[in-house]
Write a protein that binds this DNA or RNA. Structure first.
Lengths: 228, 228
DNA sequence: GTCTATAGTGTGATAGAC
DNA sequence: GTCTATCACACTATAGAC
């Protein structure tokens, strides 16, 4: 009985180890060449097993993608957590925004896998949500709430108009920064402005009044307060 | 001689017509199923020719993509030109920004082809620029300058700080809106906020002072002007 | 110019022997 | 659990006859 248990325990550990190894190699291939060029054959050769062996640990190629997305979201979340100690919510959002873009540019292929090639049909997405196995989306939502929380703090301090929902603001800021990363990653000739400058402009647009004495754009209608 | 010329002229026209037909069918397939599922076989079958015939009119599948991108940029530019008559530059930028997102959501597959799957290597891009045959990029730059012009007007009216370059602002705004479209097109579960709301928030962030009496975000540092 | 035929290469996934 | 062998496809692009 005792030895029996030990044996099955060993089996389980070996199994786990191989799964981990598959994931590890996959991660490296994706980082280097992108998920598109991660084929089951190539992967099998790299770990010195036959292609068929992979299907004992992952249901499909897409299943590996899911696992890698989960890893990616965890590491993005870590990048955010490094800034949670910043007290001022606007300053915190600035730091997290910068961290987000840095993450995307530092790990372009992982970022692509997470946010740019999830082209599943709408019904597949709904299916995954219903079954509750879209772990990446759950993680994404959790990370996003770090941002939403900061916006909620801004609102609590009356530094955000009442009509702006914190979650919507968080998603808006996220989308804006995603655009910068995405355009850079597609490698087109435009935009020619460096990403850091684009980030600066975007964050200033959102948080300028919190960072400087003059608003970024001066209204033509508003009375000039400097002549009082 | 006259009849000779007529004959070659007919040939040229037939040739042109077939090229146009190929493009037309390609456009429809891309609109319906996306460029990824536009195969030379499928295309050939649809126009009732052999696959080989296509290579007489287009160097490769990518060459067809280029032609379609050029078409897409032309139609995007048209959408922008419809708003050039708006006198106030901030209002014009608002209208063009909305038009941009509408274009992307209305023609998702064309948009994807134009801005989301141009994953050529950096050196290929440089090569194309050197040879001057990246017509899409040239068109893109031309369209972008419609936006940059409006920012330049804002600056001329002292409604934009001197340190903000109009072209950089244009690219920044573009990138921000692209992010909204791109996230919606990848069909992930997030963001759950509707695109129109995200656009509203983004444009408000950029142009709020021009549209309302109170700035969107209230600074904690700035003296409160309402207590004078 | 247009065709047929095919080369050449890749893919994800599975059946069945061991 | 792991293998070999293979199915069943799909693709771009070209050679060579007509």
């Amino acid at each position: 009985m005792g030895s029996q248990e030990r044996r099955t325990e060993q089996r389980r550990e070996q199994r786990e180890a191989l799964r981990e190894r598959i994931l590890e190699v996959s991660r490296e291939i994706v980082k280097r060449e992108g998920f598109a060029s991660l084929s089951m054959r190539k992967l099998a050769e790299a770990i010195d097993y036959s292609p068929a062996a992979l299907y004992l640990h992952f249901k499909s190629r897409g299943d590996i993608a899911r696992a890698l997305r989960v890893e990616g979201h965890a590491s993005l979340r870590d990048a955010f957590l490094a800034h949670t100690s910043i007290a001022d919510p606007a300053a915190r959002l600035n730091a997290m925004g910068r961290a987000y873009v840095e993450f995307g540019l530092a790990e372009p292929e992982t970022y692509r896998l997470m946010f740019m090639e999830h082209t599943d049909s709408a019904q597949a997405v709904a299916e995954a949500q219903r079954k509750g196995d879209d772990h990446a989306a759950e993680q994404g939502a959790a990370t996003l709430s770090l941002i939403a929380d900061a916006f909620a703090e801004l609102r609590a301090a009356d530094r955000l108009p009442a009509h702006a929902a914190p979650l919507a603001c968080a998603e808006g800021l996220w989308a804006n920064l995603h655009g910068i990363v995405a355009l850079k990653l597609t490698g087109a000739a435009l935009p020619e402005t460096p990403a850091t400058t684009l980030v600066e402009l975007s964050l200033d647009a959102w948080f300028a009044p919190a960072n400087r004495t003059e608003p970024r754009f001066i209204s033509a209608n508003r009375p000039d307060t400097s002549t009082r």
